[in-house]
């Protein structure tokens, strides 16, 4: 474990806590893409299939459970909870996210570290996570003004994988046989998808103005 990866995991956890706060405090999921939340639930379920078979550390197991439980809880909230469900922007959240699932799985069938069930699902989860934010970014562009908590949620979610890139550089430099090309390339693509969001987020922070993504 290095400082970059710990900071990345904490930033990821923070993004989830901010989203939970937003939904709990405002009893609303306006501006939140249910599809992105569903994709993230699939990402965690596919990536942590080894939850009960490979024990890495208490921290690792604990965080995996937190990520799986929180992502399922958020999807449940948006789909089932009557107050929250009513505020879901159904006609704005129209990204065909099942195409992202299909494309990621197809890519994982061809590009993986080993042709085993766990490795293919792990690669699938890596590719899917890289594009999982797309429905959310599209929704933000369509919904015009973005409330602070939703903006912070997306910012921390994008920042965590950026910190992971620093972690991979650090591990590549310090560990002789460390290579994680699939995660690394995917992580760079994932972070790059946030580039314009980060730009407008920085502008709104600098001018102390409302975050607004151009349509």
């Amino acid at each position: 474990m290095n400082i970059f990866r710990l900071a990345g995991d904490m930033t990821h956890l923070l993004s989830i806590l901010v989203l939970l706060l937003k939904i709990y405090a405002t009893k609303s999921c306006s501006g939140v893409s249910r599809k992105t939340q569903e994709l993230y639930a699939i990402v965690f379920l596919a990536r942590y299939l080894d939850l009960f078979t490979d024990f890495i550390s208490v921290y690792n197991t604990f965080m995996k459970i937190v990520f799986i439980a929180s992502s399922l809880a958020i999807v449940w909230c948006i789909r089932v909870h009557p107050m929250v469900k009513r505020s879901y922007d159904k006609d704005l959240d129209t990204f065909r996210h099942y195409l992202l699932v299909a494309a990621s799985f197809l890519l994982a069938l061809f590009l993986h570290e080993k042709f085993t069930f766990l490795e293919i699902f792990w690669a699938f989860s890596i590719y899917l996570e890289a594009v999982a934010i797309l429905p959310q970014l599209v929704l933000l562009q369509r919904s015009g003004n973005v409330d602070n908590l939703t903006g912070q949620y997306v910012f921390f979610l994008g920042a965590y994988r950026g910190l992971y890139i620093l972690n991979w550089i650090y591990r590549y430099l310090t560990e002789p046989r460390f290579t994680r090309w699939i995660a690394c390339v995917s992580g760079v693509v994932q972070t790059a998808l946030y580039a314009d969001f980060f730009y407008y987020y920085f502008i709104s922070w600098k001018n102390n103005s409302k975050l607004k993504l151009p349509a």
Partner: peptide, 10 residues
């Protein structure tokens, strides 16, 4: 798993 590339990251 036993071989080198244990998935130790989240």
């Amino acid at each position: 798993n036993d071989d080198g590339d244990v998935k130790d990251e989240l």
